[in-house]
């Protein structure tokens, strides 16, 4: 039987992730999509640790660590130098968390997108500063508990709409992905690899300690995020949006919220508001 995704494993055993880490499964699929002719640039984020301490590495491709706000610019330099040396084939991918993408490194990737740099920017979004111990980021959902939004009802503000921010730059390619839909995810990284210019993939990456759920539930939460309409899977090419998964009927958001301790203190009103938000957005998309 032919596997539906490449069998080659570029994620090595011995990585230093937490049990059930979504960002590690995500890297595995991303690298299956990109293949070995890839250079990774990783700013300060969970993957700074997961990659392994020097001189060991948990990935089978070169990896350059960069300062927190510097990933997209560092990747720009890697790519420009490769092109100058005549290597037009090697793919350069930023692999950054939501903190560096939504907050501290936003300017650098905005600049790279504006210049049309030929790099792939992947944000594995676990919806808070998890590596530093769960502080609120620009990606944290409304109502979620973090160490810096400790009181009920948690974070007061909705997350930034990163898809809208990226798309305002008119990138060559934009897509969302999450590890539960592995074939969809691998296909998107394969597709991104073949496109020239600035590409961005937003990966929802469940985090057991940060979201406070059983590590065995990572894939199921990743799936529920899509099935409830919380995290729609779509891609944008030539500024045309295509929804990749259109469930006949959305599951109630409660199925996604209930297993997570970070939403424990949500009031019934807040839960209804989240459901309504999702439905409103879904109707706009379905139209």
């Amino acid at each position: 039987m032919k596997p539906s995704i490449p069998a080659e494993e570029l994620l090595r055993p011995g990585h230093q992730a937490c049990q059930g880490c979504g960002a590690t499964i995500a890297m595995r699929y991303a690298l299956k999509g990109l293949g070995p002719k890839t250079i990774l640039v990783v700013p300060a984020c969970c993957w700074t640790v997961i990659a392994g301490s020097a001189p060991r590495s948990s990935v089978g491709v070169p990896l350059l660590h960069s300062p927190f706000a510097a990933a997209a610019a560092t990747a720009t330099g890697v790519k420009q130098a490769l092109v100058q040396k005549g290597d037009l084939e090697t793919q350069v991918m930023v692999w950054a968390g939501d903190g560096s993408t939504y907050d501290i490194g936003l300017q650098a990737w905005s600049g790279a997108a504006d210049r049309g740099e030929d790099i792939l920017y992947a944000c594995y979004d676990n919806e808070a500063y998890m590596n530093t111990g769960i502080q609120r980021s620009g990606a944290t959902p409304r109502g979620a508990w973090t160490m810096t939004t400790p009181d009920a009802p948690g974070s007061q503000r909705p997350p930034k709409d990163i898809g809208a921010i990226v798309r305002a730059h008119r990138p060559a390619y934009f897509a969302t992905a999450t590890p539960a839909f592995s074939e969809d995810m691998v296909r998107k990284f394969q597709k991104a690899r073949a496109i020239k210019g600035f590409r961005f993939i937003h990966v929802l990456s469940p985090c057991p300690p940060g979201w406070k759920y059983d590590p065995g539930e990572t894939v199921s939460l990743s799936r529920l995020a899509v099935q409830t309409g919380i995290f729609p899977l779509y891609e944008v090419e030539d500024e045309r949006l295509r929804l990749n998964m259109r469930p006949a009927k959305l599951k109630p958001v409660e199925e996604f919220l209930a297993p997570q301790g970070r939403f424990k203190k949500l009031t019934p009103d807040q839960r209804r508001a989240i459901q309504q938000d999702v439905e409103r957005r879904w109707e706009a998309w379905a139209a």
């Binding site: 250079i39 706000a69 510097a70 610019a73 560092t74 330099g77 650098a108």
Partner: peptide, 21 residues
Amino acid sequence: VLADSEHSAMSILLGAASVGA
């Protein structure tokens, strides 16, 4: 490359020099 800031300019050189430029 006309960078988006000096922080990015030096980061670009960090990346470029790391592949031997």
